[in-house]
Design a protein around this nucleic acid. Sequence first.
RNA 1: GCCCGGGUGGCGGAAUUGGUAGACGCGAGGGGCUUAAACCCCCUUGGACCGGAAUCGGUCCGUGUGGGUUCGACCCCCACCCCGGGCACCA
Length: 806
Amino acid sequence: MSYDHKAIEAKWQGIWEADRTFYVHEDPSRPKFYNVCMYPYPSGAIHQGHVRNYTYGDLLTRYKTMNGFNVLSPMGWDSFGLNAENAAISSGVHPRINTEAHIATMRAQIKRLGSMYDWDRELASHDPTFYRWDQWLFLEMWKRGLAYKQEAPVNWCPKDQTVLANEQVIDGLCERCDTPVIHKNLAQWFFRITDYADRLLADIETLDHWPERVKTMQRNWIGRSEGARFTIEVDGGGSFEVFTTRPDTVFGMTFCVLAPEHPLVESLITASETELAAREYIAAANRVSEIERLAEGEKTGVFTGAYAINPVNRRKVPIYIADYVLMGYGTGAIMAVPGQDQRDWDFATKYGIDIIRTVQPPDDWDGEAYVGDGPTINSGFLDGLDMAAAKARIIDWMVENGIGEATINYRLRDWLISRQRYWGCPIPMVNCPDCGLVPVPEDQLPVLLPDIEDYLPKGRSPLAAVPEFVETTCPQCQGPAERETDTMDTFVDSSWYFFRYPDAGNDQAIFDPPKPAYWMPLDQYIGGIEHAILHLLYARFITKVLHDMGMASVEEPFSRLFTQGMITLDGAKMSKSKGNVVDPVELFASHGADALRLYHLFMGPPTDDAAWNENGVDGTRRFLERVWKIAGDEWEFIEREPDDRDRDLLGLAHRTVRKVTEDIDRFHFNTAVPALMVLSNEFSDYLGDEPIAATHREVLRLLLLLLAPMTPHIAHEMWEDNGFGGMLATQAWPSWDEELAREETVTLVIQVNGKVRDRLDVSADITAVQAEQLALESEKIQDWIDGQEVRRVIARPPNLVNVVVG
RNA sequence: GCCCGGGUGGCGGAAUUGGUAGACGCGAGGGGCUUAAACCCCCUUGGACCGGAAUCGGUCCGUGUGGGUUCGACCCCCACCCCGGGCACCA
């Protein structure tokens, strides 16, 4: 009987669904395992990145189920967002229609992969039954002072009169009309994530099963730095505050720099000799993005015409405007100490500003700015102190003189959550001319997103053009009022959706706390590395807020995080826009879901980017054909007692159980698959030469159990055909017998001066003394020693002996 | 520019973390099966070279580049080159 993957895969997908094998409920008698793949954006069709993600996720669902866990693996849709809105603008079709069609298509494709979910818990962020709880959460944030409105710059296209997302700005131009984009201030909604900066930073240390690199990125993103904040007077009146991590170097301040957006700039440049140049410079800075400003190779700036007074020595120093200082970090103004900061050094050199060293560099120092520690010099009462002592002393001085104090600064900024977009969750606030900002009462939620036909923003959110939506009454005074027309960042949806799966149908509350209390935290969260910072940080933040509200039992949502690499083809990320996609749906038909899943597991380390090989699925398909033959052929068994060949094959099978188990536990799927290939190759050889039925049956049983989470359909079919009994998906994961798995002989490598010169087969329990003796007795080794003095022998039994001569 | 990763055969990768570099798969070459082709099966496959001549034996080089540490380095340290992810409105 040939391997008909279409029939087999359809059959078992039907059985698992009918049997509700992967539909679960809270069960305190069993250990739980909450397993989530980051919910996808419904782009229209699944791509190989999804297949990779869901193959890993489903492998774990099935593996943990076989290991006795109560596994919850849900699926949902991140269905609001810019792409659907852009598609609607160009097609005129409402984003809901496209989005829901995409969800239906992708759901069917995911099911075709054989990836199993508890679909009773399916959710979609564009669904009012979901986003009303976004709005509820927003109101809770507002109540707690964690939501506020403030002016902030946006990318603005003057021709289209619209706000642009960063990705819609191409080389400083609007992607639609090529008009130069400017920055414009708009009133925006923020979540006060900076209030949680310390906790978000400290609790990274509790994330023992997160990739080190993601933790490092998050630490750096939060960017806690200790330093001082102090006031600098402007010569002729006025002052500004600066933040510095190096207050000890203040005697070396030879200029100051303000960000182009700094509020003091206007008064400093007005009527100055350099006013024109300054205005031009500010306008230019306004046109480029923050990244471009920082990427600029050479530092640029312009003199304001004004001078500041160094508070410690009353020295007059010029005040510049430069775009390497950002309004969003610290105070938007710095004291510049070129002797101790390379950016300041570059700037000072370019503009001919004095450089004064305040830290003595080492004697062999030949660099420019010296940022290291050393005795303080040229600094009056700080001279001779080291960095730490000088910092403490100068901060004391600042406090005594009432000009500054020690402070902690974060690079992290508050989370801007408002979007001037249509396809998102409406922010549930009302603007009343008398009462100001008034929250929509909870019993009036959800504020429904109205259907509209024109999605093009015209200065404000498209919702602003819908009078029936905008015009309302103030919940407080009942007078006429206007609704907020901005929608929420889709990261708001994704920062709490995993709390909703445990109680997805609840129409009375965001969730009933005991339900997520059973399932949370996630035992495994799997998604792309591109989410290492923003999504994961926002989700951690909202979890902490829910915890503080008494809603969440945990402070951290994801106890184990796995970040997968991208799929590339011809050196580029596989994506529709690049036109280099390999459609998984075609491979379901030609090779089968099992062969595709196995190729994804096999193709490389899950953490790394993986290059697609168009023949790769052929290889895993061939492997499955061989296993099919092993399981299904009418073998000529003979009757005899088990001998060495049986023991060898059984030993290999037990070593394979051990290897596959260990590899799955450490997410090394790409080495688990070859172990199965080696076993099946040896198995085939064994069957070609007087096999016995008992060995065939036992090794086949183990092989199918190991294949069950990787290639579930074919494994189930073979399990059933061979009459092993019961559903494979719910069998216990096999254990291995250490005695059977033990290898009797190993290869002892003998080196002379680190180079391999001989190999011997030895007993696996050889001692160091025996290994050394064998090595020295080897004729080849004797030839290499060739009468030289043996200085040392390093023995690492049973694998290696190194003879050091000369 | 800043933060974080990564560079191993023709290709994807392995080396259980300082101890046999190249498992397994793809591709390629050769052979078998076949009227023929496909499928399938068997063999070879990092490079240069030496010996022996049926396919065995051996040497040297080799993990981005250049240094270093070590009995021993793909693995640790320093410097450099190249590629990728993120940089707050793609998600």
